[in-house]
Amino acid sequence: MKRLLPVCSWIALVALPASQSVSAESNNYNLTRGVTDISNKVYDLHMLIFYICCAIAFLVFGVMFYSILKHRKSQGAVAANFHESTKVEILWTVIPVIILIAMAIPATKTLIAMEDTSQSDITIKITGSQWKWHYEYFGEDVGFYSLLATSQKQIDGVEEKGAHYLLEVDNALVLPINKKIRFLMTSDDVIHSWWVPDFAVKKDTIPGFINEAWTKIEQPGVYRGQCAELCGKAHGFMPIVVHAMTQDDYDAWLSEKKQEMALAKEEAEKSLDATLSMETLMALGEEIYTARCAVCHQANGQGITGAFPAIAGSSVATTGEVSMHLAKIVDGVNGTAMQSFANQLSDKEIAAVVTYQRNAWGNDTGDIVQASDVNAYKNQGMEPVSSEEQ
């Protein structure tokens, strides 16, 4: 249905006002100007067409109400008997065509500018998956997942909701200002849509396809958006946060991020030789489960009937082999929403969450899985589990 929207309506859609904007001017009754040249062009185009529509409405309704009042029967008006006026037909054909051309020219220029990703300074790949974003900085060997940071207690109404409820993440996308940023967008599973109103960027991420978009931010600040495509159960829990920085601050962040990733890699290698206690694994496993698994399988491990299987009391987490349990998390399950976490979690984190699932909610197997066990499983190169084998 979205593809059937008129060109101008589509442009207005990508620039809808958002209460989550921080640096852009806010307006409860109109579009936001945003913080990019394109967003300003979209706003100006919107206002131009809005004024044209107002002028048309004023003229049409003005003539209509004048005719109703001036030519009513109580004033002695007598209906004229005529039909077919060539001049009138020419006028009501030519005038709308001129109006459409007047709107189409600036609209086309704006749409062409929105699609021109050439001569970019930075390229970032954005991958949507249920229900998180993955960002990769081309040429920098930097990549990370961005997940909702709002606590489950706020979602459940136990705690007071924060200022950026459902619009906060653990790892924000960081961009420099005054640089042309090219986005390559795709998806791991279903169609998502990366939407940041202040940039006038809204683009679908489609499995098996690469879509392009770009932005050039003019002001430092924090800009927020959301997935704008109905992508499943947790669609409303898939926010976008962008930190726009000066070039010096961006360079410092990039250097720090590279060091952070290097340390994480070293820590992952060290964890292969470590033997963690049940208590340590259970504490870390609960943290990972709450952040990554509870959205589908529920905090109590009961799952959702017909959609997501229960873990509590399941054969996989009780009587099944640990290797089969690892297979579901490391490789995912073909034909289902269960995605692979091999590149999303470290071996230590996978070991912890498997240990937690096999010992929480009354499962009580006593099984302890270490990072070395996960690494050994990965090196076996086993085939992913199919949906029939769940």
Rank of each mutant, 00 (worst) to 15 (best):
I95G: 04
I95N: 03
I99V: 11
I99K: 05
I99F: 06
L100C: 15
A102Y: 13
M103F: 09
M103T: 14
P106R: 03
A107C: 12
T108E: 06
T108S: 13
T108V: 14
K109Q: 11
T117P: 00
Q119I: 08
D121T: 03
D121G: 06
T123W: 04
Q130I: 07
W133K: 01
H134G: 00
E136G: 02
F138H: 07
V142M: 06
S146Q: 03
L147V: 08
L147C: 04
L148T: 02
L148Y: 05
S151F: 08
G157S: 09
G157K: 10
E159Y: 14
E159D: 15
E159C: 08
K161N: 13
K161F: 13
A163D: 13
L166R: 15
L167H: 14
L173D: 01
V174P: 11
L175V: 10
L175R: 02
I181N: 00
D188K: 09
D188W: 02
W194V: 00
V196G: 05
V196W: 02
F199D: 02
K202F: 01
D204R: 14
T205V: 11
T205K: 05
I206A: 10
G208P: 06
W214T: 07
I217A: 04
Q219L: 15
P220M: 12
V222K: 10
V222M: 09
A228M: 07
E229F: 12
C231M: 11
A234K: 11
H235W: 10
P239G: 07
